[in-house]
Design a protein around this nucleic acid. Structure first.
Length: 886
RNA sequence: GGAGGCAUAGCUCAGCUGGUUAGAGUGCAUGCUUGACAUGCAUGAGGUCGUUGGUUCGAUCCCAACUGUCUCCACCA
């Protein structure tokens, strides 16, 4: 027995988890053989940002992936899980700038681009290492030899390749458009990077005097008065009778004095407000379009930091809000302000720093979305890419159908620099995969590379193939692309999933994955989103330290249904830890009683009824678990395993084997050992994807001759008909029902377990209550003796008014008359009678319903008939019991 | 304005393809040092499955409307 590890009294996750993980790594189990011909299963990790450390949301995401990956690997797939991290352009740059300011009082400009980037790389190294460590602590079976980073050499090459390809196809263009500008991050943002929230504001109604007309003016309303410095027209709807006469007139901008025309444009809604709209093409997306239609000048009135520029005249240099305040005061003083109306409106803010974004016309790079969106819609609509749960495909389709061109340039330093080169001599712009030093047009050598970098999602979009070596034609790419499933939260469908899909289709010619498995958010115990500002975030590492990684994984995957948010609490962790402890102790018990060195399932003729029963239950569980996992029902699968381990294996089977285990040296003892071990080992394998560490630890302590050296490379259990023994299962369940019934009655009568009583079992199924079952009644139902018969002499069982217990298959008599409160007993039996009457009535009605008998499936009808017969039998028993009550 | 989710035991949530005496964890009550586990064992109380209709032989489950609640998208000055 010494070749197996001993199991200590208490499970110490912290020690064994690190040790086990290290061993898995050393054995190379995480690294698949690219030449293995088995069906492949590949996953790329949603790369965590190197901004910080992992939070509970990551832990959930990784857990769900980890379960799938281990499951598939154990099913024999050639399995690859690619780990990596994201450079997270804007987010990381902000973090590093913050630290620089706090610790050294410096800005990035003080350091300059090159030195600043060195700092960011230092930061990246530190946090990437930390994240990697955290992923390992969680037990993720990633192939660390293939770890990637969105800004590493290979990914950068892929980015460049893609950029140039798209540019050459005319799908990337440079244009002057209204974009979202963050004055704090000093960069453009894509639409997806702006978050809207309702804020209290005002409508300021302002008079614009009409040139050449005394005391005549038009009234416009605005929520952002400071943008009037950039007004280049006022628009009215040409069909608006009230205002049509204004068209063509000239207005004078108050405080500024500039003259602007009144133009006609159908964009203006008739009847809304005054019907006159000030047009500021440089600062509003709709106005920008109006401006284009009417050839209006675009006047940008703000600097990059949202201070007012020279167009603001005396307000120049003021911050946008200071300028607003001053301007409004001046307008009022000069009599131009008609009124101020409170108005709640949605204000967009930067998703990284929360600063209110400013729509500003600006020269930026864009990806033309329409040609890319079309095939990306198609693959989801035709099922090539499936969302799980399905409803998320609607969200995806809705977005993709309304997608705007994607602004991909960012005025940051941390990121992939756009590969556009400008010749200072002739002004030529060259977009190139390789850096150029000579202008291809004029031969000039004064070349400047574009300063802007790419949106961080531009590189994430390529992740499923850039990580596999693209643009090289690598064996990995050949083998593992398309990947199998992408696991991620619903909050990232637009940012990432959508962009991966069209990128994969465009550059690889194939979808990047066939299933998108979407999960919800992890919330705190009160149901609030975990966030830094609320301070309610929970660090997964702390939880792991306290309860173990397995417990965390259990807590995150149990009771979690796909796509739904979940709450996380200490209570859940305790329940998870308790489950691990239960499994541990059950295994300890099995281990303690082992004398065999090799597990072999005994032949059917040697198995006892309870062995056949547990094997059948086990087999049923395997089938249920596999089915649930195949349908991404992680919570359902785990619930089935939990129930089997706790309520079936521990509470019943182990108890039922105890008498045989006590009889050392008998054949029954050996059979029990083998079955205990066989089922436990299979159960551990079933559970392994969910709780990898504890299952490995126990597996190593059990005999597994001929089986894999590690549970993680063993074969996942499969449903097996040879383990099904329906007849014996049913027979044993009769015994269990009788034991439960006895316990219940004794408990009701407040009889302590130590007080034993003889048990008479009157049954039509004596074969179910063979002598082998007697010890069960002694052990589990406080029986002193057991007697079984088809019918007992009245004298024996009712002479002293024994307690009668009616089950589906037997009537049990307990001669404990001194304990019986006859009135209570009568009331109980009558209550039982009422319940049964009700059920019988319900079923009879159902069965006499012609529609039901005719239309319901035969199996359903039969089942109802059997049920009815059973209830009737019980009813007779209860009636007889009542009659016998004195 | 558009779209989607959720509503089941005191609390947190399961319930896959309509047929179950509607489940779990936790909490509560009662009793237990029953050969591993008090991070345990046994037993119990507790639900008109949000409301109203519809489809069906049959609805917690499908459909519609409503109410409450959360979220996403768009955004009219």
């Amino acid at each position: 027995m010494d070749q197996y590890n001993e199991l200590p009294k208490t499970y110490a996750p912290a020690e064994s988890e690190d040790k086990i993980y290290k061993n898995w790594c050393e054995k190379g189990y995480f690294t698949p053989d690219v030449n293995n011909d088995a069906e492949h299963f590949s996953v790329v990790i949603p790369p965590p940002n190197v901004t910080g450390q992992l939070h509970m949301g990551h832990a959930l995401d990784e857990t769900l992936q980890a379960i799938r990956v281990r499951y598939k690997r154990m099913q024999g797939c050639n399995t690859l899980w690619v780990p990596g991290t994201d450079h997270a352009g804007i987010a990381t740059q902000i973090k590093v700038e913050e630290r620089l300011r706090e610790e050294e009082g410096l800005t990035r400009y003080d350091l300059g681009r090159e030195k600043f980037l060195e700092r960011v790389w230092d930061w990246k190294d530190k946090y990437e290492a930390r994240i990697t460590d955290q992923l390992k602590k969680l037990g993720t079976s990633c192939d660390w030899t293939r770890q990637r980073f969105t800004f590493d050499e290979g990914c950068s090459r892929a980015v460049r390749e893609v950029f140039v390809n798209l540019y050459d196809k005319g799908l990337i263009y440079r244009g002057n458009r209204i974009i979202n500008w963050c004055p704090n991050c000093i960069t453009a943002l894509s639409d997806a990077e702006v978050e809207y929230s309702e804020q209290a504001g005002f409508f300021w109604h302002i008079k614009y005097p009409i040139k050449g007309e005394e005391d005549a003016y038009v009234e416009v309303a605005t929520t952002r008065p400071e943008t009037m410095f950039g007004d280049t027209a006022v628009a009215v709807n040409p069909n608006d009778e009230k205002n049509a006469h204004l068209i063509g007139k000239t207005l004078i901008l108050p405080m500024v004095g500039r003259e602007i025309p009144v133009v006609a444009d159908e964009y203006v809604e008739i009847g809304f407000g005054t019907g006159c709209v000030k047009i500021t093409p440089a600062h509003d997306p709709n106005d920008f379009l109006v401006g284009q239609r009417h050839n209006l000048p675009v006047i940008k009135v703000m600097n990059d930091d949202a201070t007012i520029n020279h167009w603001g005249g005396k307000y120049e240099g003021m911050d946008r809000y200071a300028a607003r305040k001053a301007l409004v005061a001046d307008l009022e003083a000069e009599g131009y302000l008609v009124k101020t109306v409170p108005h709640a409106h949605n204000v967009g803010s930067c998703y990284r720093c929360r600063t209110t974004v400013e729509p500003i016309a600006s020269d930026q790079w864009f990806v033309k979305m329409e040609p890319l969106a079309k095939p990306a819609l198609e693959v989801v609509k035709n099922g090539t890419v499936k969302f799980e749960p399905e409803r998320f495909s609607k969200i995806y389709v809705n977005w993709m159908e309304n997608v705007h061109d994607w602004c991909i340039s960012r005025q940051l330093w941390w990121g992939h620099r756009i590969p556009a080169f400008y010749c200072r001599d002739c002004g030529e712009m060259t977009v190139s995969k390789e850096d150029i030093t000579v202008c291809p047009k004029c031969g000039g050598t004064h070349i400047d590379q574009e300063n802007d970098v790419l949106d961080t999602w531009f590189s994430s979009a390529l992740w499923p193939f850039s990580t596999l070596g693209w643009p090289e034609k690598t064996p990995d790419l050949e083998k593992y692309y398309p990947t199998s499933v992408l696991v991620t939260g619903y909050d990232i469908i637009f940012f990432w999933v959508a962009r991966m899909i069209f990128s994969g289709l465009e550059h690889m010619g194939r979808e990047p994955f066939h299933t998108v498995f979407i999960h919800g958010l992890v919330r705190d115990a009160q149901g609030r989103k975990m966030s830094k500002s609320l301070g309610n975030g929970i660090d997964p590492l702390e939880v792991i330290d306290k309860y173990g990684a397995d417990a965390l994984r259990f807590a995150l995957s149990t009771g979690n249904s796909p796509g739904n948010d979940m709450r996380f609490s200490d209570e859940k962790m305790e329940a998870a830890r308790n489950f691990a402890n239960k499994l541990w102790n059950a295994s300890r018990f099995v281990r303690m009683n082992l004398t065999i060195e090799k597990v072999e399932l005994p032949s059917a003729d040697k198995l006892a009824a309870e062995d056949k029963w547990i094997l059948s239950q086990y087999n049923k569980t395997v089938a249920a678990v596999v089915n649930a996992l195949d349908h991404y029902e992680v919570g359902v699968a785990l619930a089935a395993i939990y129930e089997f381990i706790w309520d079936v294996y521990c509470d019943w089977y182990i108890e039922l084997t105890k008498s045989r285990l006590a009889d050392k040296g008998t054949e029954g003892n050996l059979v029990a050992q083998n079955v205990l071990c066989y089922v436990l080992t299979g159960t551990l394998k079933m559970l392994h994807p969910f709780m990898p560490f504890i299952t490995e630890e126990i597996y190593q302590a059990l005999p597994h001759d001929g089986d894999a050296e590690s549970i993680m490379i063993s074969e996942y259990p499969r449903a097996n008909e040879a383990l099904d023994f329906p007849r014996e299962s049913m027979e044993l369940s009769r015994v269990i029902a009788a034991i439960k019934a006895i316990r219940m009655r004794r408990n009701e009568m407040n009889v302590v377990p130590s007080r034993r009583a003889k048990v008479y079992i009157e049954t039509k199924y004596p074969e179910s209550f063979g002598e082998g079952t007697y010890p069960f009644f002694v052990r589990l139902a406080s029986a002193s003796e057991v007697e079984v018969a088809a019918s007992f002499d009245e004298q024996i069982v009712s002479a002293d008014n024994a307690v009668q217990i009616i089950t589906d298959s037997a009537t049990v008599y307990l001669p404990m008359s001194d304990l019986v409160d006859t009135e209570k007993e009568r009331a109980r039996l009558e209550n039982e009678l009422k319940k049964l009457d009700g059920e019988i009535l319900r079923l009879e009605k159902k069965l006499s319903n012609e529609g039901f008998v005719a239309k319901a499936p035969a199996a359903v009808v039969d089942a109802e008939r059997v049920k009815l017969a059973k209830y009737k039998e019980n009813l007779d028993g209860v009636k007889a019991a009542l009659a016998k009550l004195k």
